[in-house]
Nucleic acid binder design. Sequence first.
RNA 1: GGCCGGAUGGCAGAGUGGUCAUGCAGCGGACUGCAACUCCGUGAACGCCGGUUCGAUUCCGACUCCGGCCUCCA
Length: 460
Amino acid sequence: MLKIYNTLTGKKEIFKPIVEGKVGMYVCGNTVYDFCHIGHARAMISFDVISRFIRHLGYDLTYIRNITDVDDKIIKRAEENNESTQALTERMIAAQREDELALGNKMPDREPKATEFMQEIIDMVSILVEKGFAYQGASGDVYYRAAKFKDYGKLNNRKLEDMLAGARIEVEAAKEHPADFVLWKRAKEGEVAWDSPWGKGRPGWHIECSAMSTSCLGSHFDIHGGGPDLKFPHHENEIAQSEAATGKDYVNYWMHCGAVRVNNEKMSKSLGNFFTVRDVLAKFNPEVIRYLMVSSQYRSPIDYSDQSLQEAKVALERLYTALRQQSVADSYEPTEFTERFENAMKDDFNTAVAVSVLFELVRELNKAKTESPAMAPKLAAELRVLADLLGLLGQEPEYFLQNSTISEGLSETAIQTLIDERAQARKDKNFARSDEIRDELARQGIELLDSREGTTWTRH
RNA sequence: GGCCGGAUGGCAGAGUGGUCAUGCAGCGGACUGCAACUCCGUGAACGCCGGUUCGAUUCCGACUCCGGCCUCCA
């Protein structure tokens, strides 16, 4: 039985889909005006792992993740770059896909773009206007009337009155109430725009998700996820729009991953303290990032630093070392490790515990190599299957261990030449020369491992 | 000010009302020409003050500190 922490209730709840055996999940994706940073990577990886496990449990999952390709920041950035918004968003979408494939994610079933759902968005705004939940202000923008929706604030435990006190931003004169937000924004001269009953313009940020999720999954679906900074106002506003428009419950389980921090501060665009996925991929194998994300529970904050990446890398090396030169059986009987792994994952996707099970399995595998060789391939197979649920250990061990740091260094042939020379020296009992070679390679980050079968190496 | 979430061994990070997390680092041992890998063993923790309890790191309350949201941000 799967338990999920629901932001809406603040509790772990037993998961029960609306339609037995089927799950609809909508995750808020990125606004594509810049490269993905590590915070985006976390959200994408978290929900990838969640989707894998939901499927593993046998549910027929439909996983939707949108792309926001109309927005003020996109317009601004495109202007700065002197390119069209479309050229900018297309470039960034391609870059995102590249990053994500490198990180080992499986793609969502569908990635709807806001620009492809204009009619649905306009229709929903029209309904809200008709029902009195929206109005066109003096500025020409259409606003949502927050005070009219009695449950406004239910996701964040907030009351409209309380929010006034803390309002830090100057209220636009055209709004009836400070908490009102834009559904349709009037275009300025030269901006990308679509025709609407309220004049040429573009959708507000929140309405696109209400329209796309409803359009892809229906007006009431199981899971809605996103990053921690989307809880308010984005998801609160989505609830208000959707439930006012349809008169029905919108989403049963709201899920939010934790923040990635740098120096104990949230990594964010506005603080400018972000590292792009590309920055990190220049220094580490992408799986190292994935391991870092998955080694904590998805809701906990993660501290990002070179040191945390380095530690993740060392941990992964241990896992891969166990699979090195190890045959993997085609089939196996699941052991207690599978059960423990699955139980951890069923408890709100506790990947930290699931990963610890992987390490215990590895110890068992390492022991089996000498103590019960017939078991080893089966344990190796089990390890690979479980790790794959987290999107880990999909690479060839040799590849991971010998290329894990992408940097200039000794070529493989140069390394092999030295290893051959050392083998001769050892045969001649010239251990001084042998150690000299090993030390020299160690200085270059190459660690040698002697065994009966010969010498292998790992690049650190 | 309002609303959330934290505080665990040297570091990272789970979890539990009374026996094990796990990884890295440390220490002892096995293996090795010496190492490394691996294995075995081992020390080490639950912010502070009260309360409940036979017993609390785990439950309850106060306090201190930290983070997030309240404005665009995964």
